[in-house]
Amino acid sequence: MKNKGPSSQSYIAQSGQAVVEYLLLLAVVVSLIASITGIIKERFLGDLDNCTGANQSIACNLKSLITPGQFRYFKVRR
């Protein structure tokens, strides 16, 4: 009999290892994305109910721009 290359058992073991590696890589990427979205939510959105001077989130800054209590009214003299 002639040896035609790697046996089918070896090929199945190698493809199984590749699948396991891809699944582990996928798990790492998903965990990184989950942690990054948590950081983004905390830093950019913040707690809109607790917008104090110390809270410098983008959402609180936008809220302070839109809040009508921050406007000053002027009378125009003619």
Rank of each mutant, 00 (worst) to 15 (best):
T37G: 00
A13T: 08
Y73I: 00
Q70D: 09
R43L: 09
R78A: 01
I33L: 10
S10F: 14
L48H: 15
A18E: 11
P6A: 12
V29R: 04
Q17T: 07
F44P: 02
L62C: 14
Y73S: 00
S64G: 04
D49I: 01
F71W: 11
G38F: 01
T67K: 13
V76P: 00
D49L: 11
P6L: 12
K75P: 00
K41L: 04
K63T: 07
A54H: 11
Q56V: 10
N3R: 08
F71S: 04
D49P: 00
G69C: 01
S15D: 02
T52S: 07
L62F: 15
G53V: 05
K41T: 13
I12F: 12
A54C: 04
G16M: 06
L23F: 02
A34T: 07
P6Q: 09
F44G: 01
Q17A: 14
V76K: 02
L23V: 05
S64N: 12
Y11C: 10
F74D: 05
L32V: 12
V76L: 02
P6S: 04
V28G: 05
R77D: 02
V29F: 07
L24E: 12
E42L: 14
S57G: 08
Y22C: 03
I39R: 03
F71A: 03
A13M: 12
R72A: 01
D47A: 02
Q14R: 15
Y22S: 15
Y73Q: 00
Y73E: 03
G53F: 09
A54N: 10
I33V: 04
K41F: 09
N61Q: 09
A18N: 08
A54S: 15
E21W: 08
S10T: 13
A59N: 07
S10L: 12
A18H: 11
Q17M: 12
I40L: 04
I58A: 04
P6K: 15
I36R: 15
V29W: 06
V76R: 01
K75C: 08
I58F: 10
D47G: 05
I40A: 02
I39G: 03
S35Q: 13
N3W: 11
D49Y: 14
I33D: 08
T67V: 08
S64M: 09
I66H: 11
T52E: 04
S35R: 06
L32R: 07
L45T: 14
D47Q: 05
T37W: 03
A59M: 09
C51D: 04
L24R: 08
I40R: 08
F71Y: 15
I66D: 09
A27W: 11
V76G: 00
I36P: 04
T52A: 03
V19R: 15
Q9E: 06
S15A: 07
I33W: 08
Y73F: 02
K2W: 05
Q17I: 05
Q9W: 06
R78P: 03
R77N: 02
A34N: 01
I39C: 02
I66Q: 12
R43G: 02
A13K: 15
L25R: 07
F74L: 06
N3I: 09
Y73L: 01
L26I: 00
A18K: 15
V28A: 14
K4T: 03
G46Q: 11
G16V: 01
T52M: 06
G38L: 03
S7C: 06
N61T: 06
L24M: 10
L45E: 13
K63H: 12
F44E: 06
P6Y: 08
